[in-house]
């Protein structure tokens, strides 16, 4: 018996949780707070601990310590956490709906669509205002994923497989167009585009955080709502239909939510790899939980991965700044390989 039940307000709020879920939530919160403290204290600009405390508790305008802490480090940390949480959630939703543990936002063309849109904007319209860049990334991500959903739409039970195959194919096609644009574009512009493609939260400001928080708050009710259809979808389309679920509608809603989350994250930070793939898998390895708990914990892990990647990226070789996307790939690739090997071993045994 690994689960326990809870009931509040005369049963109006009730549920069942894995017994380790609250423990993990507390552990992740402590880890996140530790990372916050480390991120606030570390950087190219040295701040003593008393100075840090003073800047935190009684910020004085015009003081460099205050500026570095409140305008540079904190918004960057918060943006990294939100981007990571969104990418992790997006991956968890996709893995749930496709019942494929290798699904991530790049599968539905989000990263590729956003990348192509931004690269095209930089190379074809270099004088366009930078204000359009995140909007363009968001539009590109949505368009690419809609195209993949539209092509893969069908009534057959093999829809998940079809969705994955169409996703991989179209994402590869979009990537090849992006590569062509980079190859034939002016070298300076191509370098600028490549810098965006590396994925980083180095441009994060409070305004960016505001956009991410608002987006997250708007999408949160949907996240709560999709937990129960996701629980049913785990049994496959036939059983889900037999249980009374409108499979097409549920699948469309979950994928759209996943795309919206990833598009928002990518529009701010560029494509940051492995987070959508790794965060849900790590949580799944820790506790095999129900979708609601799984999503909740995945958001924590996603936030931890990107915040850690950003901290390492901006301090490890300072003043050279390594993009969070590069660091997350360096950290994520071996972990993912280990997870895969374990899975293979388990299935063989």
């Amino acid at each position: 018996m690994n689960d326990f039940s809870f009931r509040f307000f005369d049963g109006r709020i009730s549920g069942r949780l894995h017994r380790y879920a609250p423990v993990l939530a507390v552990l992740f919160t402590i880890l996140l707070l530790t990372l916050l403290a480390t991120s606030a204290a570390m950087g190219s600009f040295e701040i003593s601990l008393p100075g840090l405390w003073a800047a935190l508790t009684s910020p004085a305008s015009g003081q460099t310590e205050t500026t570095v802490l409140w305008e540079l480090r904190l918004p960057r940390f918060i943006a990294a956490c939100l981007v990571g949480a969104m990418l992790g959630l997006s991956g968890a939703l996709l893995q749930g709906v496709t019942r494929n543990p290798l699904a991530d936002p790049s599968l539905v063309g989000v990263s590729q669509g956003a990348s192509l849109a931004v690269v095209a904007l930089i190379i074809l319209f270099p004088t366009t205002s930078l204000f359009w860049r995140p909007l363009c990334a968001f539009g590109g991500a949505i368009l690419a994923s809609l195209l993949i959903q539209w092509i893969s739409a069908g009534r057959s039970s093999a829809q998940s497989l079809r969705f994955i195959l169409v996703g991989i194919g179209l994402a590869a096609l979009i990537s090849s167009v992006t590569t062509a644009a980079l190859t034939y574009g002016q070298i300076n512009l191509a370098m600028e585009a490549l810098s965006w493609l590396a994925g980083s939260v180095h441009t994060a400001s409070w305004k960016v955080c505001q956009v991410l928080i608002i987006g997250f708050l708007v999408l949160s009710p949907l996240l709560v709502w999709v937990a129960s259809p996701l629980a049913v979808l785990r049994f496959g389309p036939e059983i889900s239909s037999a249980l009374g679920l409108n499979v097409r509608r549920a699948r469309f809603t979950v994928i759209t939510l996943s795309v919206a989350l990833a598009a928002l994250a990518v529009s701010v930070a560029g494509p940051i790899g492995f987070v959508g793939l790794l965060a849900p898998q790590l949580v799944h390895r820790l506790i095999p939980s129900r979708p609601g708990t799984h999503l909740f914990l995945t958001a924590f892990v996603g936030a931890l991965i990107v915040a850690l990647a950003d901290l390492v990226g901006r301090t490890a070789a300072a003043p050279i700044q390594l993009p969070a996307g590069l660091v997350s790939s360096i950290i994520g690739a071996p972990i993912f390989a280990i997870l895969l090997l374990r899975r293979v071993r388990t299935s063989l045994s």
């Binding site: 190219s44 600009f45 460099t64 570095v68 540079l72 180095h202 300072a318 003043p319 700044q321 993009p323």
Partner: peptide, 16 residues
């Protein structure tokens, strides 16, 4: 002083 690369300068190093 060196404050990072062309495409991603270190803002904190600049502030310092």
């Amino acid at each position: 002083a060196f404050v990072g690369t062309t495409h991603q300068p270190d803002v904190e190093a600049i502030a310092a």
